[in-house]
Simulated assay, not measured.
Amino acid sequence: MAEMNQKGCPPNVVTFNMLISFLCRRGLVEPAMEVLDQIPKCGCTPNSLSYNPILHAFCKQKEMDRAMAFVELMVSRGCYPDIVSYNTLLTALCRGGEVDAAVELLHQLKGKGCTPVLISYNTVIDGLTKAGKTEEALELLNEMVTKGLQPDIITYSTISSGLCREDRIEEAIRAFCKVQEMGIRPNAVLYNAILLGLCKRRETHNAIDLFAYMVSNGCMPNESTYTILIEGLAYEGLVKEARELLAELCSRGVVSKSLINKGAIRLLDETTDT
């Protein structure tokens, strides 16, 4: 920076922000903090792009106490966190299992001068479903709709996955139908959630029907789709059919051979036909 000044090209806030981002991507948070402190001394004013990489680094390192304190530091210096800052915190809280704190923060955003956006709600809804709090996730879904936010395929895929984990397959199917009514094409994640729910109920025949519907509607299955179906067949005792499907998919290069070693598919080598 000193060399830039000597050459008559003083750094501006964009220059500092680039350096801070570079340091944070490499985990050098303390040097990034030092650069942040240098910005006002060079006659520049830090902005949210100066602070957010450091906040993200604290969250990535699971140092939530430092992250929260850093937000307070931002405010004390007159730089108010933006929605990116708060979405970073929401993501970190949910990943750390602090879902209740994430819900509380989401509801506080309006008072902090920020309006939650779709990704804010999707993040917390995902955290709630993974914590087994699908009912609260559904309440949050209703809240976002009331506030005029349109759920997307990610929202419904997350909700459906949560419902299927709780064996609420009928509700998950209703969510699936809602997506189609809205003119949104279901993706593989949403199909896989329903397929898994059906297979867990030992309704593999229905899962196969849904799989056929998935393909006919132009949604490309992925490796997880095939894993679910093969495991579903194996758990229902249809080991021969499961082996045949896996062998065919491997020969066609649709799935990798490493799939054989994943999860319940190991049963194909361990279980004998009855």
Results as ranks from 00 to 15, higher is better:
S251K: 14
K60Y: 09
I169L: 10
L93C: 08
N87L: 10
P11K: 04
I39S: 01
T155W: 01
N12R: 12
L259T: 06
S258R: 07
L140E: 05
Q108G: 04
T129A: 05
G218E: 13
G253Q: 03
L89C: 02
D126F: 05
C114F: 03
G111K: 08
E3T: 14
Q6V: 09
G113A: 07
S157Q: 01
L246P: 02
K262Q: 11
N217R: 15
M220D: 14
N12G: 13
V145I: 15
K133D: 04
N206S: 12
L128C: 12
D126K: 08
L49I: 12
E135S: 13
V35S: 04
E231Y: 05
I173M: 10
L141T: 08
L210E: 11
A2Q: 10
C219I: 12
C177A: 09
D65P: 01
A188H: 05
N187R: 03
N206H: 11
M214A: 11
L141I: 04
M220N: 14
K200R: 15
R174T: 08
Y121R: 02
C114P: 02
C250I: 15
T204P: 01
T129G: 01
K178H: 05
R77G: 00
E34Q: 13
Y121E: 04
D100R: 14
A188L: 01
